[in-house]
Design a protein around this nucleic acid. Structure first.
Lengths: 343, 343
DNA sequence: CTTAGCACTCTAGTTGCAGGAGTGCTAAGC
DNA sequence: GCTTAGCACTCCTGCAACTAGAGTGCTAAG
């Protein structure tokens, strides 16, 4: 692919992103001062079509980028656009208040992202699955019940109420908790739920209800149960011309509603700390997202994956801006989560 | 309104709910064995139109119920349809596992309602605003931080992490918590946040950070911050023929995305423990819901409002089934919440 | 290799027309 | 006085034909 083809492809993609109309040879030749005639551009576009970079909705329409064309654009032609001053300010604004709970932070991040991009945002906060175990506490409640409090290494808290088994004394549980905390502190949750609890179960057979409760909390945290997954600006999707079709929207929204599916989708992307991963059209895991692109980044805090942010938009997405924004917000959110952990 | 008009209105509403097509005089006269000719029905329908009960999309279309017609139908003509055995079974299934946290219970209720009705569901769990104060606990975390745990009368738990002010000793806090718990236990949260804390602040001036944190938790719980509001089956809306129009959907979804707005909407409805409230079309608070109806019920547990459930659908809603289902689920959810509270 | 010219193709929008559904009105019947 | 058959009228829907416009591919000349 020579330089002129690249330039034409880039202009074509950017024009189409802007206007949502198929781009004709004349538009490219004229508007951008390319210095060649439409006929030349036509020849080049025919080549690009043969390469699978662009397609024609029908003869006598202009060209539209194909998924492959977007891919090439994102990988080779695009300049990442960092957020402007105004945007940056409204991002900072969200993270100003340093006492908001993590859950709210995640919610605000989602709202922010969808507001700034006018696309749909997906944000997942620190879950239990990747966290380390810090401490367990048991509080008696209401006489015959227990409140089990689980503290993680990254500063989140999970609680669960439990009916106390009649035959276990508070002292017994207290001893168990001491042993548990000294033995498991710092381990990964997965390890705790597995080997860690197995050992304890033998030493404290009567504490099994509590231990099972702990395991249940860890597993529920992994499974997600929609907790900590925030979705913002789904209605923005409806403003995109490619989603004027209700049936398209319906299939897309059906999948968006399944928290589980979205979690899994995000889980397999962007494992690298520095990356911002772009998934275009058919590259996405679910066929329902055939017409969408996803820009994902993982948020690492102290070496541990503790959040993910993503933007979902039409394939005709402003990749440049979105990638820049996602990278920026990932940093800022990471800093905030770090603060929450360290105090 | 004589008996025959009532009958015709009822048939018309139910036919329209079924088919979504304007109902003509012939269809009514013939299909339901009314024993009169289409011409007679026409005369009656003209009267109903004059009364504002039905409208014509255009001359030579059949009639469609107006909001007023639906209102009359719901108030006077409709027989509440209790859920069938199959439905009842799938409702019970959701509440089978008695150890699921309240939050998950709410989520499942929302999913259930939207699944069974094929409309959109809105469910709010027990918030802090109407709860009573039970106990506060403070756990040291990580050396220099505190975990504040707030337990409510209805068995929910809220936690917040707090930087510990340097100059306050653990003993000081411990004393404060003891006084706090003995003095405030059982009071309404509102009272705690107001008078309750005011008094303590004087006795424990150095504990102000913790006290403010507690107030913050109560107020955040009131404001909601989207917590505990679950929305299910929004995509179902798109399957309704009246929402084939993307613009309509967009305005509706924009308001659905605003958790605050939805909370307020629900908050002003169904204050009576036994009621199921139906709000039709323009009766709704937000003009964005002009084309929708809402069926709401409040869930009272031990005399305290501790949840709300609602179904949002098109004005052309199966009121009979939905009202029956909402009433049933309200009861079952109430029982479950009661269990959570009592243990 | 580039470009002007031209015939060709396809869409979007408009108009006209026929078919169908349902009404309102009138006049006759019970 | 209520009911009903008959009929003219209205309005939507779908189909077909047509036009204007946009953009292409091809060819031949520069």
């Amino acid at each position: 692919m020579d330089a002129r083809k690249q330039r034409i492809l880039r202009l074509l993609v950017e024009d189409y992103i802007e206007t949502a109309h198929p781009v004709g040879s004349r538009a490219i030749a004229r508007k951008h001062g390319l210095g060649v005639s439409p006929a030349t551009v036509r020849n080049e576009m025919a080549d690009l079509e043969e390469m699978g970079m662009v397609e024609q909705p029908h003869t006598s329409a202009g060209r539209v980028p194909s998924s492959r064309g977007y891919r090439y654009y994102v990988d080779n032609l695009m300049a990442v656009g960092l957020p402007g001053r105004v945007e940056l300010e409204s991002v900072r604004e969200v993270y100003r208040d340093r006492s908001t709970p993590v859950r709210v932070l995640i919610r605000r991040t989602a709202d922010l992202l969808s507001e700034v991009t006018q696309y749909t945002s997906l944000v997942v906060g620190p879950g239990l699955e990747r966290a380390s175990f810090r401490r367990l506490e048991i509080l008696p409640v209401n006489g015959n019940r227990l409140l089990v409090v689980l503290l993680t290494g990254d500063g989140t808290v999970q609680t669960r109420l439990l009916d106390r088994p009649e035959n276990v004394s508070p002292e017994y549980l207290e001893r168990m908790v001491i042993v548990l905390n000294s033995g498991l502190s710092g381990l990964d949750m997965e390890v705790v739920a597995g080997r860690g609890l197995d050992r304890l179960r033998q030493d404290f057979p009567r504490g099994i209800t509590v231990l099972e409760c702990l395991r249940g909390m860890i597993e529920a945290g992994e499974a997600g149960d929609d907790e900590g997954l925030c979705l913002g600006g789904a209605a923005n999707m409806l403003r995109q011309p490619e989603f004027r079709d209700v049936d398209k929207v319906e299939t897309l929204f059906s999948i968006l509603e399944q928290g589980r599916a979205i979690r899994e989708l995000l889980a397999e992307l962007s494992l690298d700390p520095g990356d911002v991963v772009v998934t275009i059209g058919e590259e996405n895991r679910y066929p329902e997202m055939r017409d969408c692109s996803l820009v994902t980044a993982a948020c690492y805090v102290g070496g541990r994956l503790s959040g993910r942010i993503a933007i979902l938009g039409p394939r005709r997405m402003r990749y440049s801006r979105v990638v820049g924004l996602v990278a920026t917000v990932r940093e800022l959110l990471g800093q905030e989560l770090w603060r929450r952990r360290m105090g």
